[in-house]
Design a protein around this nucleic acid. Structure first.
Length: 216
DNA sequence: CCTATGATCATCT
DNA sequence: GATGATCATAGGC
């Protein structure tokens, strides 16, 4: 399991450390589980205008400001649900968006929920919530409930890349998306090319869009 | 391979 | 009334 004190750390440290963790959901019909291969950090210190918490606490984002160790689930574009892991101490609106999973268990059930090729069962934030039957009702739930986070048994062997977050209009220069390099379950995006390796123990630096494009 | 667009609705201006 | 941490589909190269 994931201790709350592990999630109480800075969001930019928590986000890459969630890679390799297992997200599992026990349902009456059986267990569905996947390995986290892609995440995005959304900060709560006022420096991140793309974060839902940036303009203060509202009815929707209340879970972001709650204690670490819970989920923040919201409805995106009127259609889909997206799952976040709340981090940092209570009162700070920070969370990590889970963007893609490698399906591990309950794959037949995921196929019934998604009706797409296996490669597309969970390679997006709205796709993985459908695949694992995650609903808005999970907003504010503990990360140790029927839906829970499990730490990896062994340290990651893969290289972690960081780059621009996907689908946002503000703060496009902040490289707060983290994913496992060359992993086939990561969502497919042209922005993957703009990513670069993150050395263990090093946090990503903000890079202006013009310089990022030239690899300077 | 890539980019463009409609669906759909809670939230915020 | 406009916006948006998305998805599936359609069409161009």
């Amino acid at each position: 399991m994931i201790p709350a004190r592990f999630l109480a750390r800075p969001c930019l440290e928590v986000a890459p450390s969630l890679l390799g963790c297992t997200l599992l959901h026990d349902l009456p019909g059986g267990r569905r589980a996947g390995r986290i291969v892609e995440v995005e950090a959304y900060l709560g210190d006022g420096s991140d205008p793309a974060s839902h918490s940036h303009r203060g606490r509202t009815a929707r984002n209340g879970s972001m400001f709650g204690p670490p160790g819970r989920f923040y689930v919201y409805r995106s574009m009127g259609l889909h649900c997206c799952l976040n892991v709340v981090c940092e101490p209570e009162g700070i609106g920070a969370a990590v968006l889970v963007r893609a999973l490698e399906p591990l268990r309950g794959i037949e059930a995921m196929r019934r929920s998604r009706r797409r090729p296996d490669r597309e069962l969970a390679n997006g934030p709205g796709k993985l919530t459908a695949a694992l039957a995650i609903r808005l009702a999970h907003d504010g739930a503990s990360v140790r409930g029927s839906l829970r986070l499990v730490a990896p048994r062994r340290p990651l062997r893969e290289t972690v890349h960081s780059g621009p977050r996907i689908g946002i209009t503000r703060a496009r220069d902040l490289p707060y998306r983290f994913f496992l390099a060359d992993n086939p379950w990561v969502s497919r995006s042209p922005l993957n090319r703009a990513a670069s390796p993150v050395r263990r123990g090093h946090l990503p630096r903000a890079v202006s869009p013009t310089r990022a494009g030239r690899g300077a």
